[in-house]
C-alpha cells in the first residue's frame, strides 16, 4: 500500500483496531497523517473555530447581521486549515485528484458520529452543489464525495447558478451578493449541509437561507475544515 499523499509505501501494521476492519486503515502514512491537525480543545460552539470564548467574534457578528435570526444553527468542522491541509485540498479539489478525498473518510465519519448522531435523527444530508460549469470542469463535487462517506440519507436539494469564483470575493461581497442557490424541491425535515470548508460561513448561510425560506425547520452544517 502507498500513501495517497506522498506515495511512500506504508507498512501495514495489524493492530486490534484494524484486524477485523481492514478498510479502516488510513490511506495516509503516519508522517502525512500527523501533518494534518484535527480540531480539538476549545472551540466556538457555533462555528468550530479555535476560540477561548464560547461564541467567537465571527459568530457574534453574524448574530448582529441576522438580528438573532441566523439561518444556520451551527457548524461543526473536523480539521484545522493549516498549510499541509491547504496543499492537500488544492490537489484534491482544484487539480482534481479525486482519490485523495479518501484520506478524509474515517476522520469524517468518526466526527459525524461524535457530534451529529444524537442530534435530530430525522435530519437529512444536503451537499453544497457546484455550478454546472464548475462541476464539468472538475469532474466531481467534493461535497458530494464527503456526503457519500456518511451512513445517512442524502438528497441533492440545491442547485447553484453560474457565477464568478467564490474564493475571489471578499466577505462583504459574498454576504451581500445575490443568493447563488435555489431549491429543486421543498423539504420539511431538518437538514445538515455538507461542504469541504467553512471559511466565512457566507456560502453555507446562503444555502441555509433558501432552505428555511422554503419551510425547512432547522439547518446546521458539517464541514471537513474550519478555514
Amino acid at each position: 500500500m502507498h500513501c495517497l499523499w506522498c506515495h511512500d509505501s506504508i507498512l501495514v501494521e495489524v493492530s486490534w483496531g484494524n484486524v477485523f476492519m481492514p478498510s479502516r486503515r488510513s490511506p495516509l502514512c503516519s508522517a502525512c497523517t500527523n501533518k494534518l491537525q484535527l480540531l480539538d480543545g476549545r472551540r466556538c460552539v457555533r462555528c468550530s473555530r479555535y476560540s477561548n470564548q464560547t461564541v467567537c467574534g465571527d459568530c457574534i457578528w453574524w448574530k448582529d447581521i441576522f438580528q438573532d435570526e441566523d439561518p444556520l444553527a451551527w457548524n461543526y468542522s473536523v480539521y484545522h486549515y493549516n498549510d499541509p491541509m491547504k496543499e492537500m485540498i488544492s490537489r484534491w479539489k482544484y487539480r482534481g485528484d479525486y482519490l485523495l478525498g479518501e484520506a478524509f473518510r474515517w476522520p469524517f465519519i468518526d466526527a459525524f458520529k461524535q457530534s451529529f448522531l444524537k442530534w435530530d435523527k430525522a435530519a437529512i444530508l444536503v451537499p453544497i452543489p457546484l455550478s454546472v460549469v464548475r462541476h464539468r470542469e472538475r469532474g466531481f463535487n467534493q461535497a458530494e464525495m464527503l456526503t457519500a462517506f456518511l451512513d445517512r440519507k442524502s438528497v441533492a436539494l440545491l442547485q447553484r447558478k453560474d457565477g464568478e469564483k467564490q474564493s475571489k470575493k471578499s466577505r462583504q461581497d459574498r454576504i451581500f451578493a445575490e443568493n447563488p442557490f435555489r431549491m429543486k424541491k421543498t423539504i420539511n425535515k431538518p437538514v445538515i449541509l455538507v461542504d469541504d470548508i467553512y471559511t466565512t460561513g457566507a456560502t453555507l448561510r446562503h444555502a441555509a437561507n433558501v432552505l428555511k425560506q422554503q419551510g425547512c425547520p432547522k439547518v446546521c452544517a458539517f464541514t471537513l475544515i474550519r478555514g
Binding site: G96, D97, L99, R136, G139
Partner: peptide, 23 residues
C-alpha cells in the same frame, strides 16, 4: 486513480502522477 465523472457520467481512470500539470 478512478473517479465517477460528472462530465461523461461514467467511472473511469485518471493519472495521479502528472496531475500537477492538469488532470
Amino acid at each position: 486513480g478512478r473517479m465517477p465523472c460528472f462530465r461523461c457520467q461514467s467511472t473511469h481512470a485518471y493519472c495521479r502522477k502528472c496531475i500537477h500539470m492538469g488532470r
